[in-house]
Amino acid sequence: MKTGGRVTNWVANGLSRDVVAGVVVPGRWQGVDLAIWRSATGVLRAWKDRCPHRGMRLSHGFVRGEGLSCIYHGWTYGTDGRCRSIPAHPDLVPPAAIRAEALDCAEADGVIWVAGAGEAGPLPAVTGLVPLRSLALHALPGQIAAALPGLRLFPGGLRGVVVLGGIQTSLCLLLQELARGQTMIHALCGPQDDPVAVSRGLEDLRRSIEQGVAA
């Protein structure tokens, strides 16, 4: 997407509070599956979802301390992406060439952003709003935008003031394309808005958009 003449390819991949220390979760950026993980001390990383050993999804693995381990044979990678241990060869120092493939990731305003390594412009700003929740729709970003003419497009998603769940809310929907025609919405709202009302409003919105897509 273009922003002020500069290209940004940051894509929201979740809310910070949903990726707590010591977990790995699946992510997706421009059709590439990701493993997004946070170390015990809070370092966040976004890597391609593929163990260099046998191609197993790293998002099925587990985080112990400052490393991510593959569930298949236990190869463990440090936050720098380098393989640091291979359980079947405990005396081997893994060659430096064995490393997970990293994308750029950053956090701001409670949102996790991912972009291609070294390619990204400035982070889209969602200052002044609070993270609400993430939910998936069986609809494409364009269909979501078309259903919400009150919101304007900005890098990363849609934002504006709308009536949702019976209340007026400052809404920001960060859009992330998933596989099979699904889109993940990472929603933020105004700090004074009732989160339960906005969440239920988003459920209604999802029903009406999906009915429109199916029709």
């Binding site: 977990v23 979760v25 993430s134 939910l135 998936a136 998933l178």
Partner: peptide, 12 residues
């Protein structure tokens, strides 16, 4: 189960 962060934390 990818699209359900709350379910993921609950299962954990």
């Amino acid at each position: 189960l990818e699209p359900y962060p709350g379910i993921r934390l609950w299962m954990r």
